[in-house]
């Protein structure tokens, strides 16, 4: 369904940081081409921006693409127009949650699922990536939700581990678990 909704677009521009940059997009495809999750997105970032520009806000807020971003920065670094692609995607995810398009409860549940996987293998399998759909603010927020853990150092470490590799435990999984247990204890205090 195509719907033109000018007011809704105005709200997006107001609520989402850097959203005004969508007008700079030249639809070149570099962002999706550089994205490690490109095969999982229903709309690549450039389409998200084009949809916004044409007022199709609902399609955008219901798109799973905006929840998939893992904050790898590739799109930001490479976008020839210097658009903050990643920040806009995150902003849209936030906004979608705020607008009630995705429930916090789901985010938390799936965050816990995801967390178990990390604990078991040290990384996430590609098959399970759709779970990230429910991570409102990318992985970082997802894990935060799951564990209400504030130790950013550990989270960043995890983040670096999110490689799309086979379902084998990573090397040093034991140490990782020790660290995670520690982090969990800390967060429960």
């Amino acid at each position: 369904m195509i719907s033109w909704n000018n007011n809704a677009l105005r709200d997006v521009l107001k609520e989402v940081d850097y959203a005004e940059e969508i007008y700079k997009c030249i639809q070149c495809g570099m962002c999706a081409g550089s994205c490690p999750l490109r095969h999982h997105m229903d709309y690549p970032p450039r389409k998200i921006f084009a949809l916004l520009r044409t007022g199709n806000i609902d399609l955008v807020l219901n798109s799973k693409s905006i929840f998939l971003c893992t904050s790898c920065y590739s799109c930001i670094v490479r976008c020839p127009r210097g658009i903050h692609v990643m920040d806009i995607m995150h902003g849209l995810a936030h906004y979608a949650i705020k607008m009630g398009k995705i429930s916090r409860k789901n985010t938390a549940t799936f965050g816990q699922e995801f967390w178990k996987q990390i604990y078991k293998r040290g990384r996430v399998d590609e098959k399970d990536l759709s779970r990230r759909y429910f991570f409102s603010d990318g992985i970082v927020q997802g894990i935060k939700n799951a564990l209400s853990m504030a130790d950013m150092g550990i989270i960043m470490l995890l983040h670096g581990r999110m490689k799309l590799l086979p379902e084998k435990p990573i090397k040093g999984i034991k140490q990782l678990r020790i660290m995670l247990d520690k982090a969990e204890q800390e967060s429960r205090r």
Binding site: G29, M30, G33, R38, H39, R46
Partner: peptide, 11 residues
């Protein structure tokens, strides 16, 4: 060579 075919919308 990898990228997005922006006419077809395919990787």
């Amino acid at each position: 060579v990898e990228g997005e075919d922006t006419h077809k919308g395919e990787q």
